[in-house]
Nucleic acid binder design. Sequence first.
DNA 1: GAAGGTAGTTACCGGTCAGTAACGAGTCAA
DNA 2: TTGACTCGTTACTGACCGGTAACTACCTTC
Lengths: 225, 225
Amino acid sequence: MSAVARRPWEGQPEKSQGEAEKPKRGAPPKPPRERILEAASDLFYRHGIRAVGVDAIAEAAETNKMTLYRHFPSKDELVAECLREHAHEVDVYWDALASNYAGDPEGEIRAWLDAVSSCVTDAGERGCVMANASVELPEKDHPARAVIESFKRGTRDRLVTLFRAAGLLEPEVLADEVFLLIEGARINMQSLGSDGPARRLVRMIETLIESHRPATPAAAAARLP
Amino acid sequence: MSAVARRPWEGQPEKSQGEAEKPKRGAPPKPPRERILEAASDLFYRHGIRAVGVDAIAEAAETNKMTLYRHFPSKDELVAECLREHAHEVDVYWDALASNYAGDPEGEIRAWLDAVSSCVTDAGERGCVMANASVELPEKDHPARAVIESFKRGTRDRLVTLFRAAGLLEPEVLADEVFLLIEGARINMQSLGSDGPARRLVRMIETLIESHRPATPAAAAARLP
DNA sequence: GAAGGTAGTTACCGGTCAGTAACGAGTCAA
DNA sequence: TTGACTCGTTACTGACCGGTAACTACCTTC
C-alpha cells in the first residue's frame, strides 16, 4: 500500500539466504561494511546473537574476518551497530508513515496496524530484534543495551504521539497497553506461533483503541492541541 | 500469604549467588544431580543459556564435568531438564493455588495477581524462563522446544480454567488477552525495567477482567457449569 | 572383607571462539 | 610513478567449547 518498509518491527528477513546477494549486473557491489551489517543482522535474527560466530558472518557477507575487524572493533560493537541500523530503519518507517498520512491520524493508525499484523503472521518472523537482543545480552554494560533501551522508549513515545494526534483519551495509558500487547504477541509467537494467543493481537488493539475514543466528535476536537 | 511458591513464573532466583549452598549442619548435602539442576537453572536465567558453559555449571554446583555428564547426556538435554523442572514447579504452584482457594475463584484470582505482580517488580527478575529460552533456542529440533511449547499452552489453559471458574464472559478470549499482556510485560521489563509500561500490568489485567464480568450475579451464576 | 555403584580428579580430545600479524593485490589521486 | 588506502588471504594466538577416558576414593550391601 504505502511506499514505506513492509516490516518495520523486525530485522532484515527479506532474504532468508544467509549469503550476500550477487552484485546486480551494472550495479556496483555493495561495500563490505554494508554487506557485513546485512549478513550479521540476518544471521543474528535467525539463529540468535550468541549462536553466530564472526567467521560465519564474514563468510555470509562474502568477505573475511580481517575486513570485518577493520570496520568494527569487536563483535559486541558489531551487534550494537546492527541494532542502531535497525533502529534507524524503523525511525524512517515512522517518519514516512507520519508524512504519508499527514492530517489523517485514523488512516495512519490503520496503516500502522497493517504492519503490526504482518509482524505476527508473516513466515520467518521471530519476534522483535531488540527484545530478543535484550534476552541474549543481559550484561548491563554491553554497548547494545543503550540502543535497545532508547529504541523501546522511542517506540512507546511514537505510539503516544500517534494516539494523541488521533484525539484518543489517555494516550499514554493507551500506548503502554498497546505496547505491552505487541511485545507479548511477538515473544509468544516464538513458542506458540501465529495460531496462539497472538492471533488476537490486532482485534485486541482495535478494541482497546475503541474504548479510548471520546464519546462525541466534539469532545475529540476539544482534546486536540 | 499462601504457602505456595513465591515466584511461580520464573527460575530459581532465591539465591543470587551462583554457587550451591553449603550443606546445613546435620542436613545431608543435596545429591549432585539436584545441585547441577539448581546451579544450571540459576546461571541460565541470569546470564543466558548459550552464555553459560558446562564447566561453569559444574563448578557452581560444586561438582565436576564428569559427574554432570553421568547424569545428563548433553548440555541440550540438561537445558531441557531444567525447563521440565521449572514447568513442574509452576504446575505445583497452580495446583496449590486451586486447592487453597477451592470454591473461591475471586480469591484465587487475587492471589494469582499478587504473584503476577511480583514478576514485574521484584529485583533480579529477568522475564519468563521459557520465553527467554525460546529466544535463545530457535532450532526446531532442540529438546527444549517441546517443553516450552507445552508449558505455554498449559499456562494459557490454566488461565482459561481460572476465568471460567470465576464465571467470566468469554474465558478463552480473556485468557489470551491476559496472557499476551503478561508476556509483554515480562519481556519489556528486560529493556525498560519495572518503571516502563510493565508497571501498568496488574491494573490492565484488573480492568480487562472487570470488562468480562457479567452484568448481574444471576447472569454469572447462569454461566457456571 | 569383597563387590558394586556413585562421585571426584586429572588429563585429554578435536573443534570453535574472538581477535591479530603480515603480506599482497587492486584502485585511486596527485 | 608514486604513495596512500582498501580489501582479500593465510596463518596464527590463546582461550574456551562440549564431551570423554582412565583412575581413585568412598559408601553401601551382602
